[in-house]
Amino acid sequence: MTQSQTIHATCVAWNDRAVLIRGGSGSGKSTLGLVLMGMGCSLVADDRVIVMRNDDRLLARAPDTIRGLIEARGIGVLNADPTAQAQVVLVVDLDETESERLPPRRVVTLLGSDVPLIHAVDGPHFAPAILQLLKAGWSDR
């Protein structure tokens, strides 16, 4: 059985591995999504993301009405070549700021699935670190 819900977020993907970027209005969800797109990620959805649980996979896709569109604050709504859907492997919460150098592993539960969660980090390495997590995950060493 497939469950789904619509979340106020931005979602971009590297290949089939997606990050769901959530936070309040004006927190920088679309901005971070655009930065990651500039680094080679593809747009899944901006503003509203449909998240579906299909067996053990958590998938994200855009509502038809906004597929291929992303807002750039102060510039307007931009076109993008969207990815139809991707597996959510990471959630970024921009409403929370990380204070620890090596934070504990956190998870958030979406539709009954636990997904790794990271908080916002103030620094130029934040977007590249997210991209590297999408590409290769965390080290266990």
Rank of each mutant, 00 (worst) to 15 (best):
G68T: 15
H8V: 05
N79W: 05
T2E: 15
L59V: 01
L43Y: 13
T109S: 13
I50W: 04
P82F: 10
E96H: 02
D16S: 00
V77A: 10
Q5Y: 10
A18I: 05
D55P: 02
S113A: 14
L69K: 08
P82D: 14
A80C: 13
T109G: 05
V35G: 00
S27T: 04
G137C: 09
A62V: 06
T31F: 11
L43D: 15
L32V: 08
S42M: 07
L133I: 05
R53L: 11
C41G: 12
L59R: 03
A127Q: 07
T65Y: 10
M52W: 04
D140E: 12
R101I: 14
D95T: 00
Q87H: 11
G24H: 08
P103N: 11
E71Y: 00
Q85F: 05
D47Q: 10
D16W: 04
V19E: 04
T83R: 09
V19L: 07
V92A: 00
D46R: 02
V92Q: 04
W14S: 07
A13H: 13
G28M: 05
A60Q: 10
G74R: 12
S30C: 13
P63F: 00
G26M: 07
R105F: 09
G137S: 04
G23C: 08
C11H: 01
W14K: 07
E100A: 05
I66V: 07
H125Q: 04
V51N: 12
V19T: 06
V121G: 07
A120F: 15
I75K: 08
V92M: 05
G33A: 14
V77T: 15
I21R: 02
P116C: 09
L117Y: 09
C11N: 08
V44Y: 07
I50F: 08
I66F: 06
I130F: 11
V91P: 04
Q3A: 14
V107S: 07
L78W: 04
T83Y: 05
E100L: 01
L102K: 06
F126E: 08
Q132E: 14
I70V: 15
T2Y: 13
P124N: 12
S30T: 11
W138D: 00
L102I: 12
Q87S: 13
M37H: 03
K29E: 08
S113R: 12
V91L: 00
S99Q: 14
V91E: 01
A84L: 05
L20E: 06
R105H: 06
V12P: 10
D46I: 09
Q5T: 15
T97G: 03
G23K: 03
V91Q: 11
V115I: 15
E98N: 00
A18M: 09
R67S: 15
L59G: 02
T97C: 11
Q5N: 12
R106S: 12
L78H: 07
L78G: 02
I118F: 09
D47A: 06
L133W: 02
L131T: 02
Q5H: 11
R48P: 00
R141V: 15
S99W: 13
R57G: 00
I21L: 08
D56F: 01
V115R: 01
T10M: 03
R17N: 14
P128Q: 03
I66E: 06
Q3Y: 14
G68K: 12
R141C: 14
I7T: 04
R73D: 13
H8D: 10
H125G: 00
H8Q: 05
L34S: 05
G23Q: 08
L102R: 01
G38P: 01
I118Y: 04
Q132W: 11
C41Y: 10
